[in-house]
């Protein structure tokens, strides 16, 4: 049998022990890395969106340089791919996909969700995106252009959704609480709840 077809939990145990025995990594390093990665979550991206909704200068920075905008919110970006931000407007709705693998703005949204990695999502986003949005019950206003961004190379992309009606006078914290993972990829649209 091809050794690569060994059950993956057994491969993990063996590879971990070999890498440790050869001094390449330690179990402490792995635990630390898991802890740091678990710290990334859609709440980070939601804080950026809420600030962009309340601070025009920050919004301008976010659209010009997403990496700097994330760093301005104390989100660590060093050594990570550059972050680009796609602005939704009355005229245009953005949807992000990676048809080749699963490129995802992990620094600001955390681990990619199951659906984002699925063959169905990757195939349908570029060919039948309005049908795909129906899986979430999302219907775009008539006349709004749908722009799909296939994240194929060195950038990672998040969507800056439109601020929903009925949120006038809300604080950045209140606004951040209504922004979900899917809103920042474009499969859903935030509402005042």
């Amino acid at each position: 049998m091809n050794i690569l077809e060994t059950p993956s939990d057994r491969l993990l145990e063996a590879v971990r022990s070999l890498l440790a025995a050869k001094g390449h990594l330690t179990t402490d390093e792995i635990a630390e890395r898991i802890r740091i990665t678990d710290g990334g979550s859609p709440a980070q991206g939601a804080r950026m969106v809420a600030r962009a909704w309340t601070d025009p200068d920050y919004k301008a920075l976010m659209l010009r340089d997403g990496t700097m905008a994330a760093e301005a919110m104390a989100i660590p970006m060093r050594g990570l791919p550059p972050l680009g931000v796609l602005e939704d407007t009355e005229a245009v709705h953005n949807l992000v996909v990676c048809t080749l693998c699963s490129c995802y703005p992990r620094a600001v949204l955390g681990y990619p969700p199951f659906w984002f990695k699925s063959a169905a999502y990757r195939a349908r986003a570029v060919r039948d995106p309005r049908g795909l949005l129906g899986e979430w019950g999302t219907v775009l206003p008539v006349g709004q252009k749908l722009r799909v961004v296939d994240s194929t190379a060195d950038y990672r992309w998040m969507v800056l959704p439109r601020r929903p009606a009925g949120t006038e006078g809300w604080s950045a914290e209140q606004l951040a609480a209504i922004v979900r993972e899917g809103d920042m990829i474009g499969v859903t649209i935030p509402t005042a709840g």
Binding site: S8, L12, W115, A120, R127, D128
Partner: peptide, 27 residues
């Protein structure tokens, strides 16, 4: 894949998933 439904439910990562992810980052 065009007629495949999308499973939009959250799927939590298990310990295996998280460790593999961490090792990939470290490498």
């Amino acid at each position: 894949f065009m007629c495949d439904p999308v499973d939009t439910e959250p799927h939590a990562l298990n310990d295996f998933d998280k460790e593999v992810d961490a090792i990939r980052q470290l490498l």
